[in-house]
């Protein structure tokens, strides 16, 4: 490596700080850090289009799933069914307010915001238009929100809840439960298509063009 390479031609491993000359791998290939094994670049054909399609599906499903019941209960002739909207608005005691607010935040709002940000950033790139205002901030925030989007954890939570009160009452999954299960799968697939390096480079090129 030369003494003073142009930093814009380099890529640094965020996990171990090793530096490489950046070269876009062929579609379907990945660039992996030699030292620590972190995936640096992972390209897939039509990744942007896939992410967009999956993101639109996520947006529709999250909104719909918030209002349909995800569980219904039946005991001694009395019945009840709840949607996430009910969880959010069922403030009963001091503790419950915080627990239900954080539940709705992690299951509905964070995934919703993150997906909307991704559409905002990737949409114009895919359409060959210049990035929208603050697209870079939007993408950075979307990446930071990733660990706090917990849709798939909630699906398992529903299953545990069903078993937990099975002695007390009869519980049944509602439409929203199946939507959340589908959502979990879609989110995982969409994240596999998401290559942060490719998107940053596309944003940079679009701005320089």
């Amino acid at each position: 490596m030369t003494n003073h390479p142009d930093p814009s031609t380099l890529i640094g491993c965020p996990s171990c700080d090793a530096v490489y000359l950046a070269r876009m791998p062929a579609p379907g290939e990945r660039a992996v850090c030699e030292r620590c094994g972190t995936v640096l670049i992972s390209t897939r054909e039509n990744a942007g289009l896939h992410i967009l399609a999956l993101s639109v599906a996520v947006l529709i499903l999250v909104i719909a799933a918030s209002f349909f019941p995800f569980l219904s209960i039946n005991a001694a002739g009395m019945a009840n069914r709840v949607s996430l909207w009910d969880v959010a608005t069922s403030f009963r005691s001091g503790v419950l307010v915080l627990v239900s607010v954080s539940t709705v935040l992690l299951i509905v709002l964070v995934p919703l915001i993150r997906t909307a940000l991704l559409v905002y950033v990737i949409g114009p790139i895919e359409l060959g238009r210049p990035p929208l205002r603050h697209a870079r901030d939007a993408f950075r925030i979307a990446q930071e929100l990733k660990p706090w989007a917990m849709t798939e954890v909630f699906s398992i939570g529903c299953a545990v809840a069903l078993v937990k009160v099975s002695s007390l009452a009869h519980l049944e999954f509602g439409a929203a439960f199946w939507m959340f299960t589908a959502l979990s799968v879609i989110v995982i697939v969409a994240d596999r298509y998401l290559c942060s390096w490719s998107i940053w480079r596309a944003l940079e090129e679009a701005d320089n063009a």
């Binding site: 009840n80 419950l96 627990v99 954080s102 539940t103 939570g157 809840a161």
Partner: peptide
């Protein structure tokens, strides 16, 4: 935590 939130709204 989610189980608790679900159950206390449902039951």
């Amino acid at each position: 935590v989610f189980v608790v939130a679900i159950l206390s709204a449902l039951v």
